[in-house]
Structures are given as structure tokens and as C-alpha cells.
């Protein structure tokens, strides 16, 4: 057996709401190797954030509940780990960056204080050591005049700078895994490109593994080694990044890639569009979750939900139909 840095097995998470139980994550399994960047893509509500938050036991409970699964980090199950130990893992070994930096930064605390606190707590640094390291970190993420700017409050930074601060914070303790949940979605393309390049550079320098959540198929192509596509609380396709874009196989992945305008479009072609809406998650489907919108749908798809199976080396797909040939699997 290969030693994965992180190995998630059969994760299931639900939310109890007044309207019923939301089946947010329905049996998700994936692995992450050292130094690897895994991209996780899919539409709003498909379970990307809940999957990662569940691994770190950060979902609000109630209403959320992890009903099944395992998440091994260095062979230890994070889902069963003692809370004190887990807090240490979250502080020092696995860190997370969220979509909106304003909600994760404390508006009434200076940037410097927010950067120094975890350094003192997890790495037992002195005030002076922490301040030096904070200046170094801000420099690393490209904040000019870092020494002076430690005294600023979050609102004195631009959106792009705040996101860079978040990244600086998440790197403060040299984590082994960085989980970035849509860290660039709210930013302009030029700033997004800055952040992506920054993270790639830091990854190469520090050798950390990354899970990068996004709905932007372009951003994923620019940063990931491997990609998992999610739909309705399932991973429905997973593959090496180049193979995914060269040989997209699941009908949903095909649809997603087809609905993007091609940047080198010479003649105007109509966009492919996936008809219908994303699923409502109040029931765990017995059928394939994509069946109501799928153009390849067969009788069997309504009766049984396909499992993620290997279709070629390193490429897994959950679908009853071989979309290349049109024949059944």
C-alpha cells in the first residue's frame, strides 16, 4: 500500500434543516500525496466545502453531522482524533484559506497581531521572533513595506492584499497541507493570477501539498496536478489534470468543459449548455444524481447509482455509459 499524506474514505455528511435532511456529501473517497496539488471543482452546493470542512471537523454541529467515513492523516483518523490533538493538527500541519478574507480576518485586530498569535501559540516563539517571522511572511506574499504595514487593520488592505495575508497566515507554521477554498473567486483576474503564481512558487519552495477548491476550470488547469469533479455530493470523475482536459469522460464533466467559450473561438459557435438545474439534496438518490440532466441517460441509470471505477490508469469515473463509444460499461 502506498502511504498517502491524506486518505479519505467514504465520507458522508448531512445537515438537519427544517425542510428535511440535506445529504451534502454522500460517500466521498480521495487521496492526497506529498507535494501534490489536488483541484476540486463543481457547481455551487455540490459539497466541495463541506467535504473539506468535514475532514477537519469544522462543520457546524448541529445542524451538520458526519455520519460515516474516515480521514487518515499520517495514518491517524482525523475524524476520531482527540480534540486537543486535532487542534494542533489544524493549527500547525493542515491549514485552510477561505473564500472571503474579510470574514476570516478579525476587523478590530491589527494584521501583525493576527499573524503573530499562532506563531507564539503553536511554535512557542517570543514576541520578537514572531514579529520577525511575520514581516518575513508578508514579504513572501508580496506586501511592500511589510514592517510598517503590520500595524494596519484589515480594512486598510485591498481585497487582493487581504487574501495574500490569509495565505501568509496559513503558511505561518509551515503546514504539510494547505486547503484553499475558492481563495481567488472574489478577486479580479489580474490579482487572481498574482495569487495563483504566488501559491505555485511557495508550493515549489516549501514542498507542501495543496487542495484547491474552485468552480473555475481555468484556474484548476493552471495549478492542479490531479482533479476531482464533484456533483450532488459525489466525486463523479477524478484524474490527472492533463488527462481530464484531454479525455473528459463523465457526461457532466463533458458538459462543463463544453459550456465554456473557447478563447480562440474564430467563428461564433453557440455554447453548449447543460439543461436543467443542479439537484436538490433532500434525498440520497438511488439513481445516478446526474440522470435528470444527462443526455446519455439509460434505463439502468435510473435504477442504480454508478460507483467511481477506474477506466484507465489514474482515471476514475462514475457512469454506466462509456461516453466515447456510447456503449454500456
Amino acid at each position: 500500500m502506498i502511504d498517502h499524506l491524506l486518505q479519505v474514505e467514504n465520507l458522508e455528511t448531512q445537515f438537519k434543516t427544517p425542510d428535511g435532511i440535506v445529504h451534502a456529501v454522500n460517500g466521498v473517497s480521495f487521496t492526497l500525496n506529498e507535494g501534490e496539488t489536488l483541484g476540486v471543482v463543481g457547481e455551487s452546493g455540490c459539497g466541495k466545502s463541506v467535504t473539506m470542512l468535514s475532514c477537519l471537523r469544522l462543520i457546524p454541529s448541529p445542524p451538520g453531522k458526519i455520519v460515516a467515513g474516515e480521514a487518515f492523516f499520517h495514518g491517524q483518523d482525523l475524524l476520531k482524533m482527540d480534540p486537543e490533538e486535532l487542534r494542533h493538527v489544524r493549527g500547525a500541519q493542515i491549514s485552510m484559506v477561505f473564500q472571503d478574507p474579510m470574514t476570516s480576518l478579525n476587523p478590530v485586530m491589527t494584521i501583525g497581531k493576527q499573524l503573530c498569535e499562532p506563531l507564539k501559540l503553536h511554535l512557542n516563539m517570543t514576541d520578537q521572533q514572531a514579529t520577525n517571522r511575520a514581516i518575513e511572511l508578508l514579504g513572501l506574499v508580496g506586501i511592500p513595506r511589510a514592517g510598517e504595514r503590520l500595524k494596519d487593520y484589515p480594512h486598510q488592505y485591498s481585497g487582493g492584499m487581504r487574501q495574500r495575508v490569509m495565505i501568509a497566515m496559513s503558511l505561518a507554521c509551515n503546514p504539510q497541507i494547505l486547503i484553499a477554498d475558492e481563495p481567488t473567486t472574489a478577486l479580479d483576474v489580474t490579482i487572481q493570477a498574482q495569487i495563483v503564481d504566488l501559491v505555485k512558487r511557495l508550493r515549489d519552495e516549501m514542498g507542501m501539498a495543496i487542495i484547491w477548491i474552485t468552480h473555475d476550470l481555468g484556474v484548476v488547469a493552471s495549478i492542479a496536478h490531479r482533479v476531482a469533479v464533484m456533483y450532488g455530493g459525489y466525486i463523479i470523475e477524478e484524474s490527472d489534470v492533463k488527462d481530464l482536459y484531454a479525455n473528459p469522460t463523465h457526461p457532466y464533466t463533458l458538459g462543463l468543459l463544453g459550456s465554456l467559450p473557447h478563447i480562440e473561438e474564430k467563428v461564433h459557435t453557440r455554447l453548449f449548455s447543460i439543461e436543467g438545474m443542479p439537484p436538490v439534496l433532500y434525498k440520497k438518490p438511488v439513481s445516478c444524481p446526474f440522470a435528470p440532466r444527462c443526455t446519455f441517460v439509460t434505463e439502468k441509470c435510473w435504477q442504480e447509482n454508478p460507483k467511481l471505477e477506474t477506466v484507465s490508469p489514474g482515471h476514475r469515473v462514475a457512469c454506466w455509459v462509456d461516453t466515447k463509444s456510447g456503449s454500456k460499461r
Binding site: 489534470v241 482536459y245 468543459l257
Partner: peptide
């Protein structure tokens, strides 16, 4: 800076940031 949905593009091109 436009993200391009093609990983091969990123192997060939260095973009100006």
C-alpha cells in the same frame, strides 16, 4: 491573466503577471 481551461497551455506559456 485569463485562466485557460487547458493544462498544456500552462506548460508552454509563462504569463505576464
Amino acid at each position: 491573466a485569463i485562466p485557460v481551461a487547458d493544462p498544456v497551455y500552462y506548460e508552454k506559456n509563462r504569463r505576464k503577471v
